[in-house]
Write a protein that binds this DNA or RNA. Sequence first.
DNA 1: ATTAGCACTCAAAGAGAAAGAGTGCTAACA
DNA 2: TGTTAGCACTCTTTCTCTTTGAGTGCTAAT
Lengths: 342, 342
Amino acid sequence: MLDDRKQKILAAVINEYIVTGEPVGSKTIAAMPDIKVSPATIRNDMAMLEQLGYLEQPHTSAGRIPTYSGYRLYIEKLMPQKAISEEEKLLLDRAIDEVEIPTEDALIESASKALAEITHCAAVASNSAPQFSIITKVEVIPTGKRMYVLLMITSSGAIKNKVCRLEFDLSDEQLEFFSKYVSENLSGVSVENLSDEMLRKLTEAMGTYMMTLSPLIKGVSDMAKDFCESDVHLSGEKNLLTRTDVSANEIVRFIEQKNQLSQMLDGSFSGLQVMFGEDGNFIVNNSSVIMSPIKKGNKTAGSLGIVGPLRLDYAKVIPYIEYLTGRITDLISEDYDEEENE
Amino acid sequence: MLDDRKQKILAAVINEYIVTGEPVGSKTIAAMPDIKVSPATIRNDMAMLEQLGYLEQPHTSAGRIPTYSGYRLYIEKLMPQKAISEEEKLLLDRAIDEVEIPTEDALIESASKALAEITHCAAVASNSAPQFSIITKVEVIPTGKRMYVLLMITSSGAIKNKVCRLEFDLSDEQLEFFSKYVSENLSGVSVENLSDEMLRKLTEAMGTYMMTLSPLIKGVSDMAKDFCESDVHLSGEKNLLTRTDVSANEIVRFIEQKNQLSQMLDGSFSGLQVMFGEDGNFIVNNSSVIMSPIKKGNKTAGSLGIVGPLRLDYAKVIPYIEYLTGRITDLISEDYDEEENE
DNA sequence: ATTAGCACTCAAAGAGAAAGAGTGCTAACA
DNA sequence: TGTTAGCACTCTTTCTCTTTGAGTGCTAAT
């Protein structure tokens, strides 16, 4: 459909536009060393590319800029292969390797910081896998008059705590009863499966202690719910603010709605995905979101990516993301296999 | 020094400027109902006020805007008394009363959110009082192969946890030894006083377990240090971004350096304080920071305030801050007295 | 001491005019 | 038939020049 030369011209226009941010004219393209035709020819081709919807003109006497379809084609087929340089690789590797205790969360977080830094964009990290979070421990620790701290730890190494205030102080036996009962009944349960049903049973089982202990049970339930909320985490937002082509208000709106991203990601997506901020979705106008999944076994355990301007150096940035998600996937899959084999 | 009429005129100029953001001319002032003199007279007075450094002109043919000294005088003497309306009071009270477990941190946080909302500014909350944080509990909880969670709870109800990975699994007796030893020796110690000295003694006391347990001791030390870092917490930053008179870049710079605020606050300040973003300090240009201390007994336990534009409705906002810090001070002082009397 | 009157200043807004980049079309060329 | 040179045309950007209007400071009268 698009002959070789037209593809080359389209790629050249987008490459140039990504660098300069200015509409690209036929002369500029003709001046490139590997383009052997005259500006007039390029003008003809550009007119064609515009008709096909890959380019557009801001106004009659300006050069061309890419449309969304233009970017899409560019990303899928046309963009140059850019390898990650040694220094960059070092930087990314360090982010992964310096994590002291390589839990899933810690890895994703560290990687996302590095990603924000190296790309000068905002990085998105999301944990969308409560199905892997199995309760391994629930503890109650008295800390003062009628005050108790609940502690919940999951198989993926995540920890939450919650302060509860009860109506009465608990006796040692009440405390022990609760501890034992909760440990026995909740260990091994996925935080996702901690249904209201189970909690009701639990409450009933408390028997005469029920009234006294119910705030604790509510606390447990709250923590489990908290774990289930796949949290989207942004870092390097400031990088977005320094761009003149995206408005600060839009960014704030986006940050506030960032959790919507997890919905867009929850639908099982199996590879790297690029979304644009078109009217109609909630992504910042004039910007793009690139996300790539992190796998654990054969399920999606989270995702990592960036939010950047539309005119982003995709050819450079996409390899970073693929590299990082790849390494994290490998690391946590090892752990996973290990666990499976125990 | 400033006669009555000049004070009235200065106040009128600042009031007007706060509302409109435009330089204020003599005509505008003369049109006000309680000003009985002609524009020419006002012009004379304004020239005088300019000479005294309270007002300035952006350019010859413009009206006057307040200088920093102008604002200062306004805040200290001239601004009108604005009472908090019933609705506003309700809103602020709710923020305080809805806190389920009224720890210091929780109260300050909730109050700061309400403050950001009601003032449409960013709210600053800071906890600058490690001297009140006494370790009440340290727990070690095994969570997996060589993995342990440390838990530290302080008297002010704050909790931190830290994951540690050891070289070897601990035997039950090792675990118990550590737990007991740490509990006995650290309970009652202020996080501030947990010196390297004490930690060294602690390490030595571990005897043959030393090597194995030292990561745990390091963990304890880290958590205590963490508690000591008085953390400055911002909320409602987005409110700053919507103002056209402060630059996004400046705001980002400020947010990154927000911890410097705690230094400015640590110097015992005893009442509400207003700081301006002049060149030379790190506060955002064209903006002001208002902070008021929260007391516990007779020491400063934290502070609460806002970051807003220079042309801020001080008369409205300052009472909010005083009201909130007052209420929180009362609440935590009650607890404090209670504790003392036990 | 206050005020009316007036000349003066200066930013902001508007109106052309000129420059320049880029296009589309036509006609010539290989 | 695909490519190219040439040219008229379009439209933004930039600059200069002018006008407008708000506001001042000073002087002289009240």
